[in-house]
Design a protein around this nucleic acid. Sequence first.
DNA 1: GATAATCATGAATTAAATTCATTCAAAACA
DNA 2: TGTTTTGAATGAATTTAATTCATGATTATC
Lengths: 305, 305
Amino acid sequence: MLELRHLRTLIALQETGSVSLAAERVFLTQSALSHQLKQLEAYYQQPLFERKSQPLRFTLAGERLLALARDLLDKVASAERDLARIRQGEAGELRVAVECHTCFDWLMPAMDSFRQHWPAVELDIVSGFHADPVGLLLTRRADLAIVSEAEPQAGIVHQPLFAYEMVGIVARDHPLAEKKVWQAQDFANETLIHYPVPDEMLDLWRKVLLPAGVSPLRRTSELTVAIIQLVASRRGVAALPFWAVKPYLERGYVVARRIGEQGLSSELYAALRSEDAGLAYMQDFLSTVRERSFATLPGLTVLEG
Amino acid sequence: MLELRHLRTLIALQETGSVSLAAERVFLTQSALSHQLKQLEAYYQQPLFERKSQPLRFTLAGERLLALARDLLDKVASAERDLARIRQGEAGELRVAVECHTCFDWLMPAMDSFRQHWPAVELDIVSGFHADPVGLLLTRRADLAIVSEAEPQAGIVHQPLFAYEMVGIVARDHPLAEKKVWQAQDFANETLIHYPVPDEMLDLWRKVLLPAGVSPLRRTSELTVAIIQLVASRRGVAALPFWAVKPYLERGYVVARRIGEQGLSSELYAALRSEDAGLAYMQDFLSTVRERSFATLPGLTVLEG
DNA sequence: GATAATCATGAATTAAATTCATTCAAAACA
DNA sequence: TGTTTTGAATGAATTTAATTCATGATTATC
């Protein structure tokens, strides 16, 4: 018999295009999903996808179920918001402190969606780039902070959002384009172009250059497009989220390369005051961020608590 | 986490008004449902019903979930019909043979609903009251027969629809109104008013009077209202489905009494040719009949295969 | 044509849902 | 006002179902 669990699987399947990635997305094994799908197809006595191709394709019947899934899961989310409001009331305050430039790319759509669902919650962004966003929480100048490490701290809880890969980018005809994988030393004689933020907020600096004692020339720019243009003009190299550069890769302006054998992974957490962790609109904001981001940004991976 | 199972439970709860009856409806024990509901309320951290009263009442949060349930389960049904059509095609023939008068009461709404969902299926009623409706199936003059006993027969399968109680009715000032429970002998000196069908189609005759060798005076009428009027005018007594007489009981025209210690139960099955049992529109017709009937007729109970 | 990568499968395991047996609470009855 | 009956709740035992593990099959990739 059909359950919502199956529909959640279908959504993950579509968003990832493969059984194994979808399994990771819903925190199950590939095997579990394979069994689940087999059971679904047996129940409806017809195939729901063709697994031959990558990404896998839905059959007509599969598409129909997928449409059902989107419809139903939206409605469930809406009903659960209503239940939360019945329990805790409509209103509240949600001031978001952000420490990363690219965060705005996924934050804006999520905030738009949230604003519609919680019109009585005062939503705001704490502007400026602070060295210590968690301090803003404790001094009650913000209610939620987006951070890249979950450093334990009294009175603060960290909730995982998602992870993604940071890739190195250079012009197509730059010598580094030849190397499949870059190491710290490869940056030594390059100019590194980055956002104007403190060093410790740059993943590349914290996790790669600093440990290796490499200290390249530097240049900053506020805007992602400007950084891309500088790189394309051979003014230097940069490290950016894969999902942020993908559109430019497809147009061939620059090429992207892995940094380190395992790739340079960047993680995002929401930090909030422990007392606020039970607030329904807070949890719904986090769900919205995850849901919208996974649905729109390519290459995201889940992050365990 | 919410699953469709929970929503199916909520619908059953509303339709029956009690945990134990709802449990029976969804083929589970009272205990199972009690646990399930407790789990739901823990998940949403708020009460969903007040069990103090009979029938139980939904809280605001419960009502919201109930609305979700109706919406979602409708959509699931619609999607599953589409899947069935994708697999087997749209068209077919469905001629229904009916042997009981009151059947039309629940058959008409179900047929209306079905006609909208399967416009390409030729839906028809085989008119007249036949002594052997199953014969019509084998000679291919009908595709589905409504019968009150599941007599095994080669090439025919019986699918349970539902069961209900047949109650005896008399005028309020009739001596039999004093008796809480009637036995076969109580009919001996009365005039029994019934539909003009062969004796073996009357549940009262088959299950009560014939075994006891009681043979009262008889009088027939085509219409339920006419039977009620005759009874109210002290022209005799009758046995009718509880759900058919309930509106008249509430107006006080007649009173209803149990027949036999356990009550006289009437069962309904759909008989169809084995080869047709896998047809999607056939199964959907049966689901529709059950669903519509349980939702609208009071006092129905489930019938196991 | 070898080598990953992805998916499928059966058995074993784990987790979850359900039942059983009983108690508790409330309503109906005398 | 007890007494009986009915419906719901509870904890432990059980059953059922879902998931993982270990592995084999299949399909992409170089």
